[in-house]
Design a binder for these strands. Structure first.
Lengths: 204, 204, 204, 204
DNA sequence: CATGAATGAGTTTTCATTCAT
DNA sequence: AATGAATGAAAACTCATTCAT
């Protein structure tokens, strides 16, 4: 019903690139449903209804249900990557850079919790296409090269960067999930504490 | 990947408790399919085929598809909890206890990677029944009381225990996922490194 | 037998109340099949085929197979009751009123033999819902109060009205069944004879 | 559970003809289930369970589910016919003969209400075989010839005998159904009243 | 003989997709 | 462009019947 409430972000990106409001409404609706009920648990007519359009209209904007999930994955994954890259300052200390990483993730989750949940849930799903997989790989490589640089600089522990990345990202996901299960509130204090903990896990 | 590693455990439970071989074959097949394709993405006839039985036979052992997912959840969740509790020694130092925790999780994942993936994927799914939810809650409370005790003893950091738990568990899950995506091998060295990292995240 | 005789009525209701032609085609087909083969003996795709539509389409008009049987029951039961009530004249003699009753039933059977068979067959079936049962009860009470009045007026025999009602209605049903088995033709003469017989059964 | 309660009648016929106790248990169970839930609404394994035997055992005694329904139909239809014929006395007045007819039907219903319900429900079902239909036809012809004789003797009204038969039998069925719906109790008084009513419907 | 586990064809129902309007 | 009714393939589930024990 309140189609416009969560739409702001997508709508902006949309008009720039000439995408339609309806396409966004579909993505918005699908995001919520996919993150709550999963891909196979979500019927296309339900997406259409939530988007406030006819079921057939969905297929004017997307070739198939899989195309929707891939568009969502790529949109939000890219958005998150862009935010990460945008704020980086070479002059920052490693601890400051880690704080930046943590703060960006947290801001993303707060603005768009469904999108974060969606990205985690659909990681490496069989219905993700090559473009989604390639994007995921590109972003991973970017992050790894940064961690390798940190390792060379003795800023982080001298262990495989994949281990440190998995710990840091996994820990963040763990915190978000705990929040989703209402076992935790992602307050400023809590996230600052958590940030420091995770920093101590990886710092050299 | 390793079908047989995960089979041993179920097979044992079977002969001990008089459960049928066919019931186990169904659980075995369903575990693999559910963890790969999700609940809604797995058709019952597919489970039957993988189990080497007729589609109708599934319903001689389980009331519904939901009953299968709940039987799996409860079986493996309980198994993991039992392993955790069994090996605990009061005389161990906190660091030793953390090592125990880490080692048990690692052993579980190695023996039964599909089961671990399954438990993570189906956490808080809407098709889990009250028994599954109650079991999950009981295990969570047990873990929290231990972390609260550690906090009182100044063994871990003086932050909400839920934060430390989420970090430790989330980090472990992150490592397992990285392994699932073949970005990491859960070698002895890697997991020993990771264990130390995570310990440093939570220690007081 | 006479498919068109029974169709008129539904078709009329349809255009009046804006119901769809397809919905009526489903009801038409279901009526015939249910009255011939029973509820459990009739598969939904068979209804769809007879209605000239796809199997899935049935579920755009009815929630379930049970919803179809209840829609049919309520529609035809109400129709029969309406006809009964409509033609009643207070100034008529009891014998004339009995003739009215008999004539209405006969006209109903002739126009819509399947519907009459259906109503008799599905009387008090476990799949009838509360609305169907309530309607049935209301109509029964109406008829009983009339018989009670007749009894007070010494127009009918001084026996329980339920007995007289059961005899009169049962006799009529018996005649219709004999016709269905082709042992009898419901000719004017035959039904006039029968009417007089039944009147003599109940008259005071 | 109380398999033996209603069995007496069938059991007697059984031992005489070398039929087994198990066969009777199947018929007993099937009678109850068919009359309550209909043919298609009754699962064979349910019959077996109610009969206290294994599902496969049913097929040692009956070729198919249809064979059970036909055995039941023929058994009870023949039983009812036998009772009718047995008690007839040529020296009785027509009114006495009608009383005999009424009393036999009533005794049958009281002893074996399920069987009566079953016979009415399965009248002219598509799954009745030729033997069942032939038996039904034979009994009908017998009854008709008697009514024709009565007509010639001016004992009953000078109308088609099929009409009088339908009225008399239909009225009886109507009374039994009213009893089944708990709208009537088949007390001595009620049935004596009803008998007289129906007699007045047909008497010359 | 008796069984009951096993099954595959059949049931009711859902849904991704199409297409006439 | 937009629709939403229509659909058939496929889903979950049932059951008459068979057959190894």
């Amino acid at each position: 019903m309140n189609i416009h409430s969560g739409m702001t972000e997508l709508s902006r990106a949309t008009t720039e690139e000439g995408r339609s409001l309806k396409r966004d409404a579909i993505l918005e609706a699908a995001l919520e449903l996919f993150s709550e009920r999963g891909f196979h648990g979500t019927a296309v007519p339900l997406i259409a209804e939530k988007a406030g359009i006819g079921a057939g209209t969905v297929y004017r904007y997307f070739e198939s249900k899989e195309a929707i999930v891939n568009a969502l994955y790529q949109h939000h994954k890219q958005d998150l990557a862009d935010r990460m890259i945008r704020g980086i300052r070479a002059e920052q200390s490693p601890r400051e850079q880690f704080h930046h990483y943590w703060a960006i993730l947290l801001a993303f989750v707060r603005e768009n919790p469904k999108a974060f949940e969606f990205l985690e849930l659909h990681h490496h799903s069989p219905y993700l296409d090559d473009a989604s997989r390639a994007l995921e790989q590109r972003i991973f490589e970017m992050a790894r090269s940064r961690f390798e640089e940190f390792r060379r600089q003795r800023v982080v522990k001298d262990v495989q960067p994949e281990i440190l990345m998995s710990i840091a990202h996994g820990a963040f996901v763990g915190l978000v999930k705990a929040c989703g299960q209402e076992r935790l509130v992602l307050s400023e204090k809590a996230m600052a504490d958590a940030e420091q903990c995770v920093w101590e896990a990886i710092r050299g």
